Amino acid sequence: MADVEATKSLTGLLNGIAQKTYYNNEDITEELLKTELYPELSQENFNALHERMKGILKSIAVADMDHGQLEAFLTAQMKKQGGGGMSEAQATSLSRFWKSQRARVRDSLLAQSRWEPGLRGLTWRVDLQTSCSRSQEEEAPGGPVALLELELGRSSQNSEYVCLECDEAAFNRVLDKMADIQRRIDSVVHSS
């Protein structure tokens, strides 16, 4: 019976750590976790357990371990000597937790690593310049222009739209910059 309670407490602790760290639930605190899950444990022992599980969970999440990697990692953790090891019950709890939460933790980490606001969409077309689209002093009406519409937004909000108008030379500069960005990204990806 004690093993069942220990497993439930550890599962609750892992869920609490995930709620706070990966799902940004501000209501979850270390004090709440200790009070609800480990009231008999000293503060020092709880802090050690909490930090250890938080570190292990971070290692698993950052590596986005699949089942095989997780099993090898947990086996290595169980074999550690000198009190730094993990019990089989703890390994089982971690394995069950990761199996059920892997996709959600991964999505959360990806969302946290994105720049906001982000580019959600881009549409463009070539049109003829009209006399109201630019001042009469710049150019005579009737030349081709590129009309770009950028859809920008944060993940939890409605989109905002920015419309740009540029002539052929400006549009070619934009294309050159985008090609340069792509080359730089490719060089980083291929050098890794």
Rank of each mutant, 00 (worst) to 15 (best):
A91H: 07
T35W: 02
S159D: 11
R96M: 11
L122V: 15
N158T: 10
F97S: 08
M53K: 05
L41A: 09
H67P: 00
S191A: 14
L109N: 12
T29L: 05
S95A: 14
G16C: 02
L49R: 14
T75S: 10
D107M: 11
S9H: 04
A170H: 07
Y23N: 00
D27E: 09
L33P: 04
M1S: 09
I185P: 02
G16L: 01
D186F: 13
C132I: 12
E5R: 05
R102T: 04
A2K: 08
V188K: 13
D186C: 11
S100Q: 12
N15G: 09
A18N: 01
S113H: 12
S108Q: 04
Q101M: 12
Q101C: 06
L175S: 15
W124V: 11
V145D: 00
Q81D: 12
R184E: 15
E44K: 07
M53F: 11
R96I: 14
L10E: 06
I60W: 05
D107I: 01
L74I: 08
Q19N: 10
V189P: 04
L147Y: 05
A169R: 14
W115D: 02
G68C: 05
T123Y: 02
S87W: 06
E137M: 06
T130K: 12
D186L: 15
A2M: 08
G12F: 09
E30H: 05
S9R: 09
P117R: 02
Q136A: 12
R114S: 03
G16N: 01
P117Y: 04
K177G: 08
A48D: 06
A169G: 07
V174M: 15
D180T: 14
I56V: 09
S95T: 12
M78E: 15
V62M: 09
I17R: 01
M1W: 04
Q101S: 11
R104G: 10
